[in-house]
């Protein structure tokens, strides 16, 4: 009797499996398409071109800079959202989540209206310092941060909310000042989530396209990241576009697989 029941339970419903396979196909089929189109023999030559090297370097620099910037301002933001009660906190939380749902192009346009040379803040900034953010690598970092930082904020905020505040209280009774508590208790205890948030942020930053091309434009070596290079190449040099796409998939996959342990545990 128990043996029979066990056997029945161990076989999942066929409909579910079929739908699951279909679900997986949504992810896998496009990748197969990419692999089928890959000019394997020319790949080394395609990937060592100057455009590719420039785009790869720029993507790495801008995504890592955006991740660092997110860490510097996003973690404190997450902390405030998790630990400080203030009127309108849910509105602020909504604002933080907004970049996740609005089209990145809209984000880029909004950045242009705010920080462009004629923008709300950009104009006085430009007059005071001569600084021009659009069409610069800093513009790329900013656009990418706008789109990617929410991943860090929500991950870290969730971890902080789940962290039993008694640990911090215990540290305080042991004589630890606020910074010591943060440094020796709070951050070490949310470290897995922090790492997961940083990885997600970085991965999103690496793939950002819409906000970047709208706010920072497209110039090889200065603002043309890998996704922009793919987009431009698609219309002129498809082999290079495919090679670049494959490169991005490989980088992202490598990082996500390498960190999957931490990633799963904290999400």
């Amino acid at each position: 009797m128990t043996g029979l029941r066990k056997r029945r339970v161990s076989r999942p419903p066929l409909v579910l499996v079929a739908l699951a396979v279909l679900g997986l196909a949504v992810f896998v089929v496009p990748l197969l398409g990419l692999l089928a189109r890959t000019p394997w023999r020319d790949l080394p030559a395609l990937l060592t071109g100057e455009i590719v090297a420039d785009a790869l370097r720029l993507s790495m620099v801008s995504s890592l800079a955006a991740t660092a910037l997110s860490a510097v301002v996003g973690v404190p933001l997450a902390w405030v959202l998790a630990r400080v009660e203030f009127p309108g906190r849910s509105i602020v939380r909504g604002l933080v989540l907004l970049p996740l749902v609005i089209p990145p192009v809209v984000g880029g346009a909004a950045l242009l209206f705010a920080l462009g040379r004629r923008g709300l803040i950009g104009e006085p900034l430009n007059q005071a310092t001569g600084l021009v953010l659009p069409f610069s690598t800093w513009g790329v970092v900013l656009a990418v941060t706008f789109v990617a930082m929410p991943f860090l904020v929500i991950t870290v905020e969730g971890a902080l909310r789940n962290l039993d505040s008694r640990y911090e209280g215990a540290a305080a009774t042991l004589g630890a000042k606020r910074w010591t508590v943060l440094r020796r208790v709070t951050f070490p205890m949310i470290a897995p989530s922090l790492v997961a948030g940083l990885v997600l942020t970085w991965a999103r930053a690496l793939g950002e396209f819409g906000a970047t091309i709208t706010f920072a434009g497209n110039l090889p070596g200065r603002t043309q990241t890998l996704p922009l290079a793919v987009f431009v190449a698609l219309e002129s040099d498809r082999d290079t576009a495919v090679a670049l796409s494959l490169l991005m998939v490989a980088i992202s996959l490598a990082v996500l697989v390498a960190l999957r342990g931490r990633w799963w545990r904290s999400l």
Partner: peptide, 27 residues
């Protein structure tokens, strides 16, 4: 709290899970 000099043994102890016994005691 950090200036009160009050020793607390918390319910469930609330030991820092990421620190060794030695580091917990030395905290």
């Amino acid at each position: 709290p950090e200036d009160r000099r009050i020793g607390v043994v918390f319910q469930d102890y609330v030991l820092f899970p990421h620190l060794t016994v030695m580091d917990n005691i030395a905290f």
